[in-house]
Design a binder for these strands. Structure first.
Lengths: 142, 142
DNA sequence: GTCAGTGCAAAGCCTTTGCACAAAT
DNA sequence: ATTTGTGCAAAGGCTTTGCACTGAC
């Protein structure tokens, strides 16, 4: 089993990215821990090993890692608030790259299973479901 | 059939909100059009009828309408970027109020139906699905 | 030695807030 | 009359950017 260190060097190499010390510690920090982290979270963690690191570097590399699929972005969201007036039950198909949103019907969801799997007390009376993928235009550009 | 005007006055009354002219036009603008709009979009539209309206008023009222369920927020998102290192297929349960995220398995999704319903060309190779609801703590607070 | 990456500070967006004025109930 | 809402401008949070320096290859 390769060390986390070697594992990252290999991944970086595949992506054509330089394997800097900063990238190493950022990657290891996020991958080592389960859960969902903000740039500030990561910065705080990584700083303990590498006090000279900057927040800007954390931002730049998190974005880069997400783009290259080394990390996953939670709730890929438009940079702005969006509202809609359509209150009829329906769901959304969202492009993770261009953030375009289109409506989609919900018959692909088994609501019974869903509520069985949700933790006790989680209110799913009117669940809103968003499915993320790549729209045609963005997946063509690749 | 009640006019849109009367309809809004009734809704506002139910929520204990004053039925101001600004609210009227904001509400009507969003409800009248299908689609997903940003505060700037709404501002631009509403301004044509009511040039003196301010962007701050649009923001305040969109938030208010969403809170009262008159409008729906698309992709209710944390105010910050979040990343995770877990690349295994799994999905998220997100609280629309406090934005807490927890992982959830995906067996409530019928992937065949989903891809059949998606528009041609939409790339769902690794769909990421987020289910929004209210976590226990937030639904208790109500 | 060359080129990509880092750190810093400044600028950028989107959004919220404080407060005096205006309008709704 | 009282309370709630509006408009303005300023402040706020998160994120990106420009540039000189540093480190990877």
């Amino acid at each position: 089993m390769p060390s986390a260190h070697e594992q990252f060097r290999e991944l970086a190499w595949k992506c054509g990215l330089a394997a800097t010390h900063q990238r190493q510690v950022i990657y290891e920090a996020v991958v080592a821990m389960p859960g969902h982290y903000s740039p500030e979270n990561v910065f705080a963690e990584v700083r303990r090993r590498t006090p000279s690191i900057s927040l800007a570097t954390v931002y730049k590399n998190l974005r880069l890692f997400v783009e290259h699929g080394l990390l996953r972005e939670v709730s890929p969201h438009a940079s702005t608030l969006l509202v809609e007036g359509n209150l009829e039950p329906h769901h959304h198909l969202v492009c993770t790259r261009c953030k375009a949103v289109q409506d989609i019907e919900g018959d692909f969801i088994n609501y019974k299973k869903l509520s069985r799997q949700a933790p006790r007390g989680f209110d799913l009376t009117q669940p809103l479901i968003e499915v993320f993928g790549l729209c045609r235009r963005c997946s063509a550009k690749k």
